[in-house]
C-alpha cells in the first residue's frame, strides 16, 4: 500500500448524491415489502388450501424461487421483457423481480404464522357463524401477525440489502450511485466503504426501530 493515501473527502462531498440513491433503495424496499406481503398471504392460503392443485402450485413456486439466485431471477425478468418486446422501466422490472422473489419467502413466513394458531380458534370462530373472510380478519390474522412480525422484520432487512442487485439493471439506487461515484472519483475503495457504511447504518437503524415498535404493539398484559 505504499504511496496510497486514503482520501475520503471527495466521497463525503458527494453525500447528497449517495443519499438520493439511498432514498430509492428505501422506497423500492418498502414497495417490495408491501407487495410481497400480499403475494405471500395469497401463497400461504394456497399452501393451506384443501385444493391440491393450489397447494402444489404454491409449493413449487416457493421451491423454485428459494433454490435459484435473485440475480438470475432479475435478469430473467428484465431481459425477458425486452425479448418479448415489452418496454418496462428498469425500476418496475426490478420491483417485479424483488416481489416475485420475496413473495416466496413470505409465503412460508405467513404460512408458519397461520399454522401456529391453535386449531380450536378456527373451530370457535366457525361455530359462532363467522364466514371464512371474517374468520381470517378477526381471529386468524391478529394472532398470526404476532408470530409473523419478527421474521417479517428480518425479511425486510434482507430486502434492503439485496435490493442492491437492482443496480445491475440500472436502477438508480444507493449501489448504483456508489458505482457512478467510484468511476468519477477513481477512489473505488473509499467510495464503496462509505456506501457500505450507509447500508449498515440504514439496516441497524431500521431494525432497531422495528424492534422497539414490536415491543410496543405486541406486549399484552400477562
Amino acid at each position: 500500500m505504499h504511496g496510497y493515501v486514503f482520501q475520503f473527502r471527495p466521497i463525503f462531498q458527494e453525500l447528497p448524491l449517495l443519499l438520493s440513491g439511498a432514498l430509492v433503495t428505501i422506497h423500492i424496499s418498502i414497495l417490495t415489502l408491501f407487495f410481497s406481503f400480499i403475494v405471500g398471504t395469497i401463497g400461504a392460503l394456497c399452501r393451506l388450501s384443501r385444493f391440491r392443485w393450489l397447494n402444489v402450485a404454491a409449493k413449487w413456486y416457493v421451491e423454485f424461487i428459494r433454490n435459484t439466485p435473485l440475480l438470475v431471477q432479475l435478469f430473467f425478468i428484465y431481459f425477458g421483457f425486452s425479448q418479448i418486446n415489452i418496454e418496462v422501466p428498469n425500476y418496475l422490472a426490478g420491483l417485479i423481480g424483488l416481489v416475485v422473489n420475496n413473495g416466496a419467502y413470505l409465503t412460508e413466513i405467513v404460512r408458519a404464522g397461520i399454522e401456529a394458531i391453535h386449531k380450536g380458534q378456527f373451530e370457535a370462530g366457525l361455530s359462532l357463524g363467522l364466514s371464512f373472510p371474517q374468520l381470517m380478519r378477526y381471529v386468524v390474522f391478529p394472532q398470526a401477525f404476532r408470530v409473523i412480525y419478527p421474521p417479517l422484520c428480518n425479511q425486510f432487512i434482507g430486502i434492503i440489502l439485496w435490493s442492491s442487485l437492482v443496480s445491475t439493471i440500472a436502477v438508480e439506487d444507493l449501489a448504483l450511485r456508489g458505482k457512478e461515484l467510484a468511476s468519477t472519483t477513481f477512489r473505488c475503495f473509499e467510495t464503496y466503504a462509505v456506501v457500505t457504511l450507509v447500508y449498515v447504518v440504514m439496516t441497524l437503524t431500521i431494525s432497531g426501530v422495528l424492534k422497539v415498535l414490536g415491543r410496543r404493539f405486541f406486549s399484552r398484559p400477562a
Binding site: 391453535h118 380450536g120 380458534q121 373451530e123 370457535a124 370462530g125 361455530s127 378477526y138 381471529v139 391478529p142 394472532q143 404476532r146 399484552r220
Partner: peptide
Amino acid sequence: GIVFQSFNLFPH
C-alpha cells in the same frame, strides 16, 4: 352454540 373443552377464547 358450542362450548369446547379447551375454551378456545380469542386471546387477542
